[in-house]
Amino acid sequence: MLNVDDLHSYYGRAHILQGASFALPAGEVMVLLGRNGAGKSTTMKSLIGIVRPARGRIDFAGVDIAGWEPHRIARAGLGYVPEERRVFTDLTVLENLEVGRQPARDGRPAWTEERLFALFPNLGRMRTRAGGRMSGGEQQMLTIARTLMGNPRLLLLDEPSEGLAPVIVEEMAGAILALKQEGVTVLLAEQNLHFAARVADRAAVIEKGRIVWTGTMAALHADEAVRTAYLAV
């Protein structure tokens, strides 16, 4: 589904991604782990095109999307849920969803408001509430739902559990597993290892802008050396 090869990105002159490479098979959930400032968010932003990569290939379902505009990448089937939620606070829940709407692809059934409300029952109870008047957890659900309205084949989630109450994080884990059942591929950046362990099939560890380790969650669990060197847990 996704094949990233030697990706380099800069902020101004700061060289942040220094040749990141990894592959993500279709239908799997992969978690990107790493210290603060390692480049997880920058990887996500480079994939969706908000940060334009300077060099490297991003092979998405057979097409090199590196250097495309964000809206083209999104239309190609990449969905992005940013770190800081970013709901449209003046728009209602339904309007927020409307912004995310894109046509269905691959002949799969399109996400509709009703299907999303079934997945996130909380949202269904506040359809006309303004995004700015929702709690942090509800906003997080809304950003995911909004992105799903674009019927993505690959979903990028940047720290979805941050700032959420443990009960909500549990619900979120359930939702991600449900998405996986639907056939959506997920790339997740996380700090919460408990959460990552619950939802992910495989992990990639990023350090100073390079992927230094990839493998299954079980392998990560067994590899004490990697965990102490890069994750320090």
Binding site: I50, E69, H71, R75, R86, G100
Partner: peptide, 10 residues
């Protein structure tokens, strides 16, 4: 409110 986010939504 957030033009970058709008672009990221296609």
């Amino acid at each position: 409110q957030d033009r970058e986010m709008v672009a990221a939504l296609g």
